[in-house]
Write a protein that binds this DNA or RNA. Sequence first.
DNA 1: ACGGATACTACGAGTTTCGTAGCATCTAGA
DNA 2: TCTAGATGCTACGAAACTCGTAGTATCCGT
Lengths: 115, 115
Amino acid sequence: MARQINIRLVFQQRLREARLRTGLSQKDLGIEAGLDPFVASTRINRYEVGVHEPDLSLVSRLAQVLGVPTAYLFCEDDRLARLILAFDGLSIAEKERLLKSLESKKSKRKSTVKS
Amino acid sequence: MARQINIRLVFQQRLREARLRTGLSQKDLGIEAGLDPFVASTRINRYEVGVHEPDLSLVSRLAQVLGVPTAYLFCEDDRLARLILAFDGLSIAEKERLLKSLESKKSKRKSTVKS
DNA sequence: ACGGATACTACGAGTTTCGTAGCATCTAGA
DNA sequence: TCTAGATGCTACGAAACTCGTAGTATCCGT
């Protein structure tokens, strides 16, 4: 009812979106992620179009090249995606401070959120 | 140099960790995620042990049963994992407020973070 | 000691992705 | 305009992977 999100579609979109942000071509992204230059274009294209799914180790290398945490590529929720990127830019001290603040007031709210 | 994290290992650990938090057995987790009861135990076990990788649609269903965002299962960084869980418990208004605050002060810091 | 629940694994069958070899479109330069 | 290069994309058989089956081992409660 509420949520039947297609995670594969999410992955495709986040991947393409992040690649375009870096300005890389499909081929160059693949090459920088360690793929053979002769197959890089083909394979990255298939991941963005949704024909195939890459295995986790490649996903991780792609994320590194794209400058995002691996988790970012699997965010169904745009707010969560934004959060991850913003958090990524913080210093360790700032991260800890934010976590402390968030985790302290948890369980206060009952979370009447619907989605 | 710095980071050669094994994302597969991360996935295994987050999966098991989240399952134990819910108190479900490997079998029951699989069943609730829609697997045939006769293969549920076997398959979930292989994912936790790292023998095989599930496809994205199953990962998504597992995350739903476990009550975490799909992205959570791919967090290399513990701090990011904590953040995602904490963020998940906020109301939409609180999420927006937090994002606004984080995104406004971005680009102020140069992010001298090393890891 | 028994039965049941849980975690785990080898093996062949089945399903998926991979590499190859292309095609179509667009742009820049001759 | 014609060509060359870059980019995005796809069908096909081969290769690599996961799947279901059929088990084993261990622990726990009765």
